[in-house]
Amino acid sequence: MQIILVPGRPGSGKNSCLSHRHLLVILLIGGLFLPLFFGVLTFRIHALLERHSGEQSLVSAYGEELARQATALEAAKLEASTHLNALALKLGQLQAQVLRLNALGGRLTNMAGLDRREFNFETEVAQGGPEQTGMPGGLDVLASLDRLSLEITASKAKLQALETLLLDRRLTDAVTPAGWPADGGFVSSHFGTRADPFTGRLAYHEGVDIAAKLGSPIRAMADGVVSYAGEKSNYGRVVEVTHASGLVTRYAHLLSLLVKVGDKVGRGDALALVGSSGRSTGPHVHVEVLKDGRAVNPAGYLRAAR
């Protein structure tokens, strides 16, 4: 094989002649080393690509794991917020119940006449004792609050029942005659058989006479409604008060009346003034207590507040 090299300047060309041996060496180099070079180069490129692909997959896996953790964290935050909201709501309900319970306890303390220093519902209950450590298990706050709520509800129901009982008792006491109808004075004639002050013969006295200062007030012995106010034979001027307990109190021999039929009166309200009207020997008030229309001994009702 002959190779002619033509340079850029004229007249300086060279020619070379390659033998068969030279051609064989060139073919061997081209046939062996070039494929090997390109093979190694391709392998390196492929390895680099695989490594890059593995790193990309690892980064993607890390990203997915971070996304899952972020989702789990948000769910945990939401659940914690829900529990805190439920806890705050439960605490608010318990605080409202405790306030109502304290108010109810204060009312009962006043109604029952208890010592407020001993039953003070506005101060914390005294507690104490050594601390115990190492107790197994933890405190279930929600379960404890539920139990406390049930206990408060039960206590409230009991206190309300007690309040109703005390209120009924107070109402019964308010409409049951008890007290001393005159300002001062003394019993001048008892209930039952006595010597009639005008005839001297034995007679049945259906009330109690209380001698008192002329013109002094006569007061109601219990809450009620004035059912009679006027004149009656032998009684002179009379006021009768009907009470919700079914009893009727009668006040007789009055100087003047301060109420009229239909008036509502409370215990201690002035009804009339002490006089000596009717069949009377001097200033006093004749007191009767009627049960089912029949006179009963007023002494027990008078002693109740004497």
Rank of each mutant, 00 (worst) to 15 (best):
A178R: 06
V175E: 10
Q97P: 00
Q93G: 07
P181G: 03
F121M: 05
Q132L: 14
A103F: 12
T176M: 08
L99F: 12
L159R: 05
R107D: 13
N110W: 10
E122C: 11
D146V: 03
G185R: 05
N102L: 08
T123G: 01
R116L: 13
A157T: 10
G184E: 10
D115L: 02
Q97M: 04
R147G: 05
S144Y: 10
A154S: 13
L171T: 15
V175A: 11
A161Y: 10
P177A: 01
N85G: 11
A126T: 14
L145P: 02
G184P: 06
A112Q: 10
L91R: 15
L159Q: 03
F186N: 04
E163M: 09
L99Y: 07
A178N: 02
A103I: 09
V125Q: 14
A161M: 08
D183E: 15
L150I: 00
R117Q: 14
M135I: 13
L99C: 07
T172G: 15
L148K: 07
A86F: 05
N102K: 13
Q95M: 08
R100G: 06
G105R: 00
P130N: 06
V175Q: 06
T176N: 05
L139H: 07
M111Y: 11
G128H: 13
L159I: 00
A161I: 03
Q93C: 01
